[in-house]
């Protein structure tokens, strides 16, 4: 698997798009940090960017990479290599190269600004960890969609819709639900519902780490009670881990009976 991973990784690190992705974070980081000169504001701005962008890029790259390397995958499938090895290698190759662009693109400006000697270091690390998690999760989700859809246009559309649903529509429905049933105690429900969406989960996780939960009122207090504690953090990270592992397991299962 390591070999396939290496080749996917080195193939991707030479792709122009990966550099764009890196450059985007790098430049935005420089601009936001050095022009604004406020570390915590920059971190908050980056939450909003990362929460939307890492899943989108993971989804788009995932689905494009899968379809694009289809014939090459066929070449590999004819070699004496296990099927699961090939796809795990490609999955980790892609996820790691995207994560590297993201972490380096964002990390370098923050380190230049002096994050290492600042109190915000933990929040910054939280930002990176969540971004990496979201990348892995959405790459594996899009690999699953690509495996299920032979038709590339349809696969692409499903992948973008999935992103749209989790990044935008889910929140809308969530809000509607809260408004419609606001006479009932909904804190448990809200807590549960947010774990079903990795984007929401990541957002809440970082927001609460930033100690701005007071702005969120009573529900915020409930969330703070849950997510703010060591146990809450632990459980959320476990759920994020499940979000990363389960799609990969489904992919491996699906692969056994897939025709190429």
């Amino acid at each position: 698997m390591i070999k396939i991973l290496q080749y996917s990784f080195s193939d991707l690190t030479r792709s122009r798009w990966n550099y764009f992705y890196f450059a985007f974070y790098f430049l935005t980081g420089i601009v936001l940090l050095f022009l604004n000169d406020d570390l915590s504001k920059a971190v908050i701005t980056f939450i909003n960017i990362i929460i939307v962008l890492t899943p989108l890029i993971g989804t788009l790259f995932g689905i494009m990479y899968f379809y694009h390397s289809r014939e090459f995958t066929e070449l590999l499938l004819a070699q004496p290599i296990r099927r699961s090895t090939i796809f795990l290698g490609q999955f980790f190759g892609l996820s790691l190269s995207l994560s590297a662009s993201f972490a380096l693109g964002l990390g370098i400006p923050f380190i230049l600004y002096g994050i290492l000697f600042s109190t915000e270091i933990f929040n910054f690390l939280m930002l990176i960890v969540t971004g990496v998690f979201l990348t892995f999760i959405f790459v594996s989700l899009s690999f699953n969609i690509a495996l299920d859809n032979e038709n590339r246009i349809r696969g692409f559309a499903f992948a973008v819709l999935l992103w749209l649903f989790l990044a935008v529509i889910y929140d809308g429905l969530f809000l509607l639900f809260l408004v419609a049933f606001n006479e009932y105690p909904l804190d448990k429900f809200a807590l549960l519902a947010s774990t079903f969406n990795p984007i929401d989960l990541s957002r809440i996780l970082i927001l609460l780490k930033l100690d701005i939960s007071a702005l969120l009122g009573y529900t915020g207090a409930v969330f703070q009670n849950f997510f703010g504690t060591g146990l809450g953090l632990f459980i959320s990270l476990i759920v994020l881990l499940l979000w990363s592992v389960l799609p990969v397991l489904r992919m491996l299962h699906k692969l056994k009976s897939k025709d190429f």
């Binding site: 080749y7 193939d11 792709s15 014939e71 090459f72 070449l75 004819a78």
Partner: peptide
């Protein structure tokens, strides 16, 4: 087995 596939498309960056 050595196999020659019908359509040859390889990773473009290599």
């Amino acid at each position: 087995i050595n196999y020659l596939p019908q359509i040859a498309t390889f990773p473009g960056n290599l």
